[in-house]
Write a protein that binds this DNA or RNA. Sequence first.
RNA 1: CGGGGCGUAGCGCAGUUUGGUAGCGCGCCUGCUUCGGGAGCAGGAGGUCGCAGGUUCAAAUCCUGUCGCUCCGACCA
Length: 482
Amino acid sequence: MSKKEKDFVKEITSREEDYSQWYVDVILKTEMVDYAPVKGCMVIRPYGYTLWENMQSRLDKRIKDTGHKNAYFPLFIPESLLQKEADHVEGFAPEVAWVTQGGSEKLTERLVVRPTSETIICSMYAKWIQSYRDLPVLINQWCNVVRWEKTTRPFLRTSEFLWQEGHTAHRTEEEAQEETLKMLEVYRDFVENDLAIPVIRGRKTEREKFAGALKTYTIEALMGDGRALQAGTSHNLGQHFAKVFDITFLDQDDQLKYVWQSSWGVSTRLIGAIIMVHGDDRGLRLPPVVAPVQVIVVPIMPKKTREQVLPKAREIMDRYRDKIRMEIDERDYSPGWKFNEWEMKGVPLRMEIGPKDLEKGHVVLVRRDTGEKIFVKEEDLGETLESLLAQIQDNMFQQALDFRNENTRYCDNYQEFKNIMEEKRGLIKTGWCGGDECEERIKDESKATIRCIPLGEEGKGEGHCICCGQEARETVYFSRAY
RNA sequence: CGGGGCGUAGCGCAGUUUGGUAGCGCGCCUGCUUCGGGAGCAGGAGGUCGCAGGUUCAAAUCCUGUCGCUCCGACCA
């Protein structure tokens, strides 16, 4: 980066210098979030929240298109409900927040502030499900959850976060498994196409799976610093919860049976992924599909031409407003200042309109992803804007995919494995014997965990285990993770 | 939950060693001039020095405690 460029971004620490500080600088300076007075909690400010709303509406549509309906279950869960599923309690007990008092009176039974809603939802499903005719039950909820985390980072791990959790009940094991994979695919489609983040679908190992699940599937993404992030999970719960919550139905064959269940969720953590996958040293780069502002109009208006420029700029914006999220920046700052500000905020396209453009009957467009400057005739604008936004979306996905490919390595030497994890990081695809001991030892020695066993490759291990050298039962992806 | 760093104006910092009128840069407000990559001049506003105790004639400064942020490790969407 030239010295001139450095001056423009002096407010943000470079990624190379300190990636964590870069992340914090970006989210604060772009006004996505601010720290709240409560430990581990953040305020999602309008710019960040609008992004979340755009993500929500795109994903919500997919969830509904696959037959699910939204509902809302309570924030508070009686302690006795949480206690029912042994693995589940064990997994979540260390990080639940308790309500012990209401007003001035101590509660007879403590309440859990939901860390996830399996237990309270299952307790209701037990009431609602009687017959095979009541199945499947396909419910989703958008809500907040609380997990008392020890180490917190805005979006990536906060004490309270926003998410969506789907909870389904099915007649057969096959149907539950089909649902689990169907929703994983919905997540892949959403994250890759709308957020422009390439993901790897796969299954979690026993050690990494959700507390109380039979099988956990995940989509994993690679961040700009070479660490992986679990971007979404989908769980086949089997009959674990059905049995402890007594969710039974009378099947067609007159037999009383337990339902088969799934649950799946993605959270505001995805915002962290967008920042870390696409961001650069100038700040955010937001994928057009979900960007709060897709096109920012910056009028260049010296006093003499102000009366000509401003109405024209407004007129152009109004013309495309229903289709494209456009805003005009009429504030009393210099154009250069605005350019830098909106680049930092990651707006995909900038439109400059000044006196010279009026004369020539065109406008200037500048792409955030490439910096390319494009002069467009006013009459071609509608078409150009839409096609450029689409191109930017595609290009951002491609850039992220290239980065991931460059940082995915194959390795069958343990020492080399450890060196890569120490220096370059990224993903390593290699063999694993399937043993818990090896998984643990690798984690201790390299801080890398098995991110997933790629979908469709289960049980297809080739070569030998990276750790113990025995025959590989699985081929898996390793990485240091958030 | 352990180890390190930091809390002084909206932001970034100096002042703390050696106690004695709370400062600088940016930003903010007003006016004028400006506007194609972070504009210029002039004037102005803004602080219980994270919080609570203590020592002292006197505390941003010394002592004790506490809270928060941040980084690095152990647990997790």
